[in-house]
Design a protein around this nucleic acid. Structure first.
Length: 926
RNA sequence: AGGCGCGUAGCUCAGUUGGUUAGAGCGCUACCUUGACAUGGUAGAGGUCAGCAGUUCGAAUCUGCUCGUGCCUACCA
């Protein structure tokens, strides 16, 4: 073995080994099955740190359950991501000065498939580099034939049951992409704008105050061209007299009605609201109530259409706004313009302001689907982890709106609906079935709906469509419902809720029993990572490393806003002046596991990854030590309990604890605690103590050979178990170093990934060994402390005197003297029988005093200062504890064991206090 | 406006049903190349647990308020 751990040399080969040996397929054993469905990544781009995090956790659980003997499936696949993917390919066409219309639908879709092929492969490559143990033989894509069949069936069934309908309604219209988008795809941000107050002249009427106009305000003046009424509150005294009268709509020839509706807040503004049913969701409702005319004034590009006065036709919405404001001003009808902050709705993909727009769209009637989905979580059929996320889920589900599922795109599942020349709608899987189903003659012309379905419609079916539904496959029977869904909180609405609704509807059962919601990976400053901010990282660059120039190039190419490039470059140079070193997959994975606590943000931290890379190196070297001391040496064929050293007993006992902790925390999805427990055990128990304690046993000639052989066995077995415990988090390193260890142990099996996960063994629980070794550690630490604080060279062997010892101390010493001699570099120990002793530095082990004679080694004043400091600390702690105990309320009301514990503590502290005080007196007297 | 969080060492974060001397990693200081490892070892410094009040024998932990901060949802023209 090399002296240092080099991830590059070991990672790649093992993945191919696992894959070619088919270790990732379900075992097929009947009984316990365990299944995780990958949240299918978009084929739009490549995987980012969030995916890396998400997949690390899934792989960790998958490997754990596989090793625990479950029939385990981790289902891989990708999502077609309609709008986003179409946009990427359109952008490429634009670069060649072409549009998708130049190609036509069929050719364009072919192009997208080409993109999907390339991008999908990149994604799968990334997943492999991250060590993901997915069953590749079952890989699926949302637009596969099988999954498309599922989509059609679901659509047809929901339509036939009246749960899908087509309707002309206001939708969120993206004027750039020319498609409707759902509420969830609109992001509203506060932006600076204006509030324009306009005068609408009254027709044949006057206000009580004599004015002959009303004032209405708007943030979107251009919409006034589509006004069909002005509304006031029915109880508003100011306007009671003019309800039913008319105003002249400026800039047009139209006169519109003044209506009363309690939607109007009389306290707000003038108390008058212009009503534009075609371009505002609230106004639309008002329009419905009052049977108002719906006047659409926009084209699909959000330019003014022919319904508006000729002067404005063809103008872009913002040009029209300008012109309207100017024109009103000239007419003296602009009363006031105020700065105003408003929420501006933008398409999450296009970034342009979306418009409420009247179109024909397909909707899912959601309430009948939502009700059982709410119940499933309420009843505990599905549990959120952490539990609190169920509140977010309920919050949304209780206010859910019908779901607009049609998109005016070319890339996606084409809606299985056909129209005849009269516009009648026929819904079935294909045209032939339509004709049969609706008994239509062959001569009736039919044309299929041009639109495709929202991507999330097919994603909602993922948990069962990937398993072969609508066929009743054995896989469906075995793996539905899946065990747990692992995802970020950002898609609870988009995906989680919709999977639950569809699962319940079509499988009559929940799609997963648990939903583990993890945080979102952010950059070191806590900023969300995004291409436009230029702070994204490719997990592969953490694994393999990347130099600064390449990283800058990666971050600044293909930007939506190329003007950001220099800013991004500057920030990148500052944050990664030396680029990124190669840390390897395992260090990255360990870091993700360690950061997966219950919080919402995972701040990405290179230092932390470096720390875990060092941890990997530590394991690597511990293995080196073990192999050096076991290779070509005799090893006991099994652990002989009679021949265990104290250290052996102790580490075996400690290992049982960490095994139990690992199971416990993994079952609670506390990956951070698993990582912490294993880190602590590996480094601070196994390496810092056990390996060091083994050295005297293994190296000293006077130790019985059978004891040595037994200890070697313990070393190997404990390490082997430890590697198995760590394998779900750091699969590559553990496989690499498990192989030679397994060889020494003559284990069956070719891979750690198919070994049984450790279970704790009560035979090795040995509480006495814990106490006894604790005593040794205190002894050793006491000496080390004096050595360090008194500046005694670490290499200098010491003469030690012991005073005030008990039989117990002597018996403990019996078992641990070799450790003390070796780890504390002690040369000679003398058990004093009385108080007489040379002037010395002191450490305590319980009541026993360890004395290190000053004898030219130690400065007297330094030692008394050190003692004084410790005495002072004890004093203050004793004082605190006594105050507690002297409070009658405490001793009466607190549980007995708490009180006893406190008493014991005080008495221990008092003893130490006495001992140290005596020692101090002695030194100062001399 | 409503909902959900967060505020613990210089930084990143743990802290289970209230009972420790409040922990870890990184960073920092000193010493050390000792026969697995300098991607290391040993020892150490560093915290009024945002603030105030309350419940309790006892609060980082429970309650209320204040301040700071983040996210989500819905919005009044």
């Amino acid at each position: 073995m090399d002296k240092t751990y080099k991830p590059k040399d070991i990672e790649q080969k093992w993945y191919q080994f696992w894959k070619s040996n088919d270790y990732f397929s379900p075992s097929g054993e009947v009984g316990n099955s365990y299944c995780i469905m990958i949240p299918p990544p978009n084929v739009t781009g490549t995987l980012h740190m969030g995916h890396a995090f998400n997949n690390t956790l899934m792989d960790c659980l998958t490997r754990y359950h596989r090793m625990c003997g479950y029939n385990t499936l981790w289902q891989p696949g990708t999502d077609h991501a309609g709008i986003a993917t179409q946009m990427v390919v359109e952008r490429q066409l634009n670069a060649e000065n072409k549009t998708r219309h130049d190609l036509g639908r069929e050719k364009f879709v072919d192009k997208v498939w080409e993109w999907k092929e390339r991008s999908g492969n990149t994604i799968y490559g990334q997943l492999e580099r991250m060590g993901s143990s997915l069953d590749w033989s079952r890989e699926r894509f949302t637009m596969d034939e099988g999954l498309s069949e599922a989509v059609k069936q679901v659509f047809v069934r929901l339509y036939d049951e009246g749960l899908i309908y087509r309707g002309k309604r206001l939708v969120n219209w993206d004027p750039k992409l020319h498609t409707a988008v759902s509420d969830l795809e609109v992001l509203s941000e506060e932006e600076n704008g204006h509030m324009w107050h306009m005068r609408y002249p009254l027709v044949d009427a006057k206000m009580s105050d004599g004015n002959d106009y009303l004032i209405v305000a708007t943030t979107r003046p251009e919409t006034m061209l589509g006004d069909s009424a002005v509304a006031v509150h029915p109880e508003d005294e100011r306007y009671k007299g003019i309800i039913g009268k008319k105003v002249k709509l400026p800039l047009t020839e139209r006169e519109i009605l003044i209506i009363a509706d309690d939607y109007v807040d009389p306290e707000f503004g003038s108390g008058c609201v212009k009503i534009t049913p075609a371009h505002d969701f609230n106004d639309y409702e008002v329009g419905q109530r009052h049977d108002l005319e719906i006047i659409n004034i926009f084209t699909i590009d959000a330019k003014i259409n022919d319904n508006a006065p000729a002067a404005y036709q063809g103008l872009d919405r913002y040009e029209a706004r300008k012109k309207i404001v100017t024109d009103l001003e000239e007419l003296g009808l602009l009363a006031e313009v105020k700065d105003h902050k408003l929420m501006v709705p933008r398409g999450d993909r296009s970034g342009v302001v979306v418009e409420p727009y009247l179109t024909d769209q397909w909707y899912v009637k959601i309430q009948p689907l939502a009700d059982p989905a709410i119940k499933a979580v309420k009843d505990g059929d599905i549990q959120f982890v952490p539990e609190n996320w169920s509140k977010t889920y309920f919050e949304w589900m209780n206010n859910i709106q019908d779901w607009c599922i049609s998109r005016q795109l070319w890339w996606g599942h084409r809606i299985p609906a056909w129209y005849d020349n009269e516009g009648n709608i026929y819904v079935a899987e294909d045209e032939a079935t339509v004709r049969k189903k609706y008994k239509l003659d062959a001569n009736i012309e039919l044309s299929q709906d041009e639109d495709v379905l929202d991507t999330w419609f097919s994603s909602a079916l993922w948990p069962f469509s990937t398993l072969g539904w609508p066929e009743q496959t054995p896989e469906l029977k075995t793996f539905y419902p899946s065990s747990v869904l692992i995802t970020g909180f950002d898609i609870i609405f988009f995906w989680v809720a919709r999977m639950i609704m569809m699962g319940l509807k079509f499988m009559d059962n929940v799609p997963f029993e648990k939903v583990y919601i993890h945080g979102l990976v952010r950059d070191a400053d806590g900023q969300k990572m995004s291409k436009s901010k230029g702070n994204v990282l490719d997990p592969i660059d953490i694994i393999d490393g990347i130099d600064l120039e390449k990283l800058i190039k990666k971050r600044t190419t293909d930007l939506m806003q190329p003007e950001m490039a220099s800013k991004i470059e500057k920030a990148t140079r500052k944050q990664y002046p030396d680029g990124i070193k190669a840390y390897g997959t395992d260090a990255m994975r360990f870091s993700f596991a360690a950061q997966a606590s219950t919080g919402r943000d995972i701040k990405f931290d290179l230092n932390r990854i470096e720390g875990y890379r060092n941890f990997c190196n530590k394991l690597w070297n511990a293995t080196r030590f073990v192999l050096m001391n076991c290779k070509d040496k005799e090893i006991a064929s099994h652990i002989d309990k009679q021949k265990l050293t104290l250290a052996d007993r102790w580490i075996l006992c400690k290992q049982q604890e960490v095994i139990d902790l690992t199971h416990k925390h993994l079952n609670n999805y506390r990956f951070d605690l698993v990582a912490q427990a294993l880190y602590e055990f590996s480094w601070h128990e196994f390496c810092d103590w056990y390996v060091e304690l083994c050295k005297p046993t293994l190296f000293k000639d006077d130790v019985d050979e059978s004891i040595k052989q037994n200890s070697r066995r313990v070393l190997l077995e404990v390490l082997e178990n430890l590697l198995k415990l760590l394998h779900p988090i750091i699969p590559f390193l553990t496989e690499e170093i498990w192989q030679p260890i397994a060889k020494e142990l003559k284990l069956a099996g070719n891979s750690i990934s198919t070994q049984d996960f450790p279970r704790s063994n009560n035979d090795y629980v040995d509480v006495e060994s814990l106490e006894e070794l604790e005593w040794s550690k205190e002894f050793i630490n006491g000496i080390r402390k004096i050595r360090s604080e008194m500046e005694i060279p670490p290499g200098k062997p010491l003469r030690i005197l012991l005073q005030n010892w008990s039989i117990q101390d002597q018996s403990y010493f019996e078992n641990s003297q070799q450790y003390i001699y070796s780890l504390a570099k002690v040369e000679n120990i003398e058990w004093l029988k009385d108080d007489a002793a040379p002037e010395s530095a002191t450490a305590l082990v319980g009541e026993m005093k360890i004395l290190i004679p000053l004898a030219g080694l130690i400065d007297k004043d330094a030692e008394s200062a050190r003692l004084e400091k410790e005495i002072k600390k004890l004093e203050s702690n004793i004082e605190k504890s006594l105050a507690k105990l002297n409070n009658p309320n405490f001793s009466e009301k607190a549980p007995a064991d708490v009180v006893n514990k406190e008493r014991e503590r005080v008495s221990e502290m008092q003893t130490s206090f006495q001992q140290l005080k005596e020692q101090l007196d002695k030194i100062t007297k001399l």
